[in-house]
Design a protein around this nucleic acid. Structure first.
Lengths: 230, 230
DNA sequence: TGGGCTTTGTGAATGTGTGCACGAGTGCCT
DNA sequence: AGGCACTCGTGCACACATTCACAAAGCCCA
């Protein structure tokens, strides 16, 4: 069974849901639940049951018809697929507000992403301690990445410094980047990046709010001479 | 032309890209650029030019063939569509690490989302000042939402408190929620929610890292192939 | 043992998003 | 004025994602 399941590519949409299933399954496991149906898991994850089954089917046939999925076993399989069988130390670039918060957020370490280091360009911040980690100078980045075997970098700098941070991370040997700066990074092929932009999220909510409250009824859109452009 | 553009539903994928275009367009405007082609905008946004044109076409025909888009005018149109013609005050629930960072993040106010208030259950935190905003008790939530006309709430609590925070926000009259807690919220129909889960993002990166480093090669994962990546 | 109940796994249908390719305008130059 | 170079707007085909619906497979009990 599970013959060449390894090389199987899992759809992006599924990959982004697996962590959610994993958290729920872990919680259920902690509460003593041994077995769970796709129906129940779907309910807890806020999705459709068929989607859960299809998602899980990409990992292999780990369910039992008529019964459901064995929680502990499924947790193991999802963790394995996500590469969570060992820790992935991360390095944070930028010791400002956000960098501090991230360093102090225990959820990282608990979920297998210990903070291997936090760096900043600002000499004044170097040496201070955040979330149990001492801030070091950004020039030490390569050394941290090498000695701590870091593959994942987190950019928590202002927008203007983000591209430089990315360049330094890549040069130091990092191959995945989580970017909190509101900038589109340009990185070499093969480097994985993900972006989290708080302002974008709020603007999407704004769109829905605006739509809710009477639509775009704005300023007489029917005719559209470029009158008052400002 | 543009007859009932108002009621036109814009695809989700497009809505999530509009803020990115908007930021780039604003920057270009500040740099004195008057006109921009879909090609150039696409390059700056890291997407395909056809996609840019299709996205913008949902707003209306605001380009000029052979020339491009007038930056100032397009900025105005995108802002209007996103409902950014006026500010949307937000209230933050949870004055921990993340809440602090969010309150202190100027990007919010600058982009039209001033922090109308930040609340917490912990009496010890009440009264302290974060990012220029005084922390108030969570029981004051309804009053803040009412007096400041807040439509958007941000949940920055630990997972265990998130659902309660959501319930309180909804009861207070908030209709959109940005959730940073690693929990699936259950809210009444009609309430818009978006979730940002840092751990999920890292786990997605982990998946790609794991895949990069020799696939799911089964048990022997201990070895971490970081040889000479430089 | 066999029948009934439950739940998985997945083909097929539907819906959503992407990218190409090209017609249709627009401005510029001769 | 006419032709040319450029860029938008969009129809179409393809790819990806979601959902339905049902046969296959397992458990339990008489």
């Amino acid at each position: 069974m599970a013959p060449d399941r390894n090389r199987r590519r899992i759809p992006d949409a599924t990959v982004s849901r697996l962590p959610v299933y994993l958290r729920i399954l872990s919680e259920q496991g902690d509460e003593g639940v041994d077995s769970i149906s796709s129906e129940r898991l779907a309910e807890l994850a806020g999705v459709n049951a068929a989607k859960v089954r299809k998602d899980l089917s990409y990992l292999g046939s780990y369910g039992t018809r008529g019964v459901g999925y064995e929680v502990a076993y499924l947790v193991y399989q999802v963790r394995r697929e996500l590469g969570l069988t060992h820790d992935w130390p991360v390095v944070i670039v930028g010791a400002g507000n956000l960098g501090q918060a991230l360093a102090g957020y225990n959820g990282f370490g608990e979920r297998g992403f210990p903070v291997a280091g936090i760096v900043d360009v600002d000499e004044h911040k170097v040496g201070t301690v955040m979330g149990g980690v001492r801030v070091r100078h950004i020039d030490e980045l390569p050394q941290i990445v090498q000695t701590k075997r870091v593959n994942i970098g987190v950019i928590a700098t202002p927008g203007g410094a983000a591209q430089d941070a990315a360049d330094r991370l890549v040069k130091a040997g990092v191959t995945s980047i989580l970017n909190f700066a509101p900038v589109v990074l340009s990185v070499p092929h093969g480097i994985e990046t993900r972006k989290v932009d708080l302002a974008v999220e709020l603007q999407i909510l704004s769109y829905h709010e605006q739509r809710r409250s009477g639509g775009v009824a704005g300023a007489a859109v029917g005719s559209n001479p470029r009158t008052a452009t400002a």
